[in-house]
Design a protein around this nucleic acid. Structure first.
Lengths: 178, 178
DNA sequence: GTCTATACGAAGATAGAC
DNA sequence: GTCTATCTTCGTATAGAC
């Protein structure tokens, strides 16, 4: 069910993913939504963010690259999978919630922030581990995340992986700069 | 009214910007919505995209920079204004629509694509005019757009301009690479 | 736990008077 | 052109039976 929610948020944004759609997509029993998610949609959105965040951290954590460019390639490939698997229709769950949520939904935004922060931390420490300058590791990690999030939006607009590949090339070039 | 719509879409996404909010924010007469926008919300969203797109093109077109880095600085500054003016609450109208719209809303997505494409074209031709290699101009333009769109999302999450500044630094570094 | 039914509100859109 | 009033749809959430 959380998986269905994440999948729908990726494709249509948070408010575009209704409970009706989610139960239809997941085949989950209609009557038990509020049994499992007493706090309703916010809670489901937070779980979707959490699940996505963990998926990203796990994938990225399994990266065995020994160079900065290799680390970025792992990260790029992770998002490439999302775009290719959906034929360019899907974006990032966390970004979907971030854009489509009121600024006063404090808890949700905190979940968004936590996800982004953990990804940056993970990338930065992997970059450092390859010998990349510590002072630039976090900076490059933030740039990589921003570049991918932006690329996902462009891919969605063009319904193609092409923008992601273009951005990926520039990102790798950046990592090769000294 | 279009301006109000754009402002609200930037802050809360497309579905978060209701007509009630828009008339309240703009002070426009409630009864004349469908007089001026016979096709309803889709039309208003398209107009908001169009207006935003033209604002970006005008701002960027006024850039007098003579170097690739200068051109990027103009583009960065444009988005910095958006973030700073809203205290980190606002993002990009076009991205807001792109993320928060169903894939089958063909016309809206076409407007999104047209806006992004025109921005890339504008940037690429300005880069070429500074003597930047023609083969890399479009590539760098796409990367710059993706980087800014992603940065806007991160800024929204952190409610700070800091991510934008970080990304900006890396982008300028990229333009300086040969 | 899961069901059906329904309350409740919000949002888009329409009708017809002025 | 703009108003008020209303219709319809849809989405979240709740109540109470099984």
């Amino acid at each position: 069910m959380v998986r269905s929610a994440a999948s729908l948020i990726r494709r249509r944004g948070l408010s575009g993913a209704s409970f009706a759609d989610i139960v239809a997509d997941s085949g989950a029993p209609r009557g038990s939504i509020y049994h499992h998610f007493p706090q309703g949609k916010d809670q489901l959105a937070k779980e979707a963010i959490r699940a996505t965040s963990e998926w990203v951290l796990a994938k990225q954590g399994a990266c065995a690259a020994k160079t900065p460019v290799g680390v970025l390639e792992c990260f790029i490939d992770l998002w490439r999978q999302v775009v290719v698997a959906s034929n360019g229709a899907a974006g990032c769950v966390v970004a979907g919630v971030a854009v489509d949520t009121m600024p006063d939904a404090t808890e949700l935004m905190a979940a968004v922030r936590a996800a982004f922060d953990s990804w940056v931390d993970s990338l930065a420490s992997q970059l450092r581990a390859t010998g990349f300058p510590a002072a630039r590791s976090r900076t490059l990690a933030v740039a990589a995340l921003a570049a991918m999030e932006g690329a996902l939006i462009l891919c969605r607009a063009e319904r193609s992986v092409e923008p992601l590949e273009t951005v990926a090339g520039q990102l790798k070039r950046l990592a090769a700069t000294r």
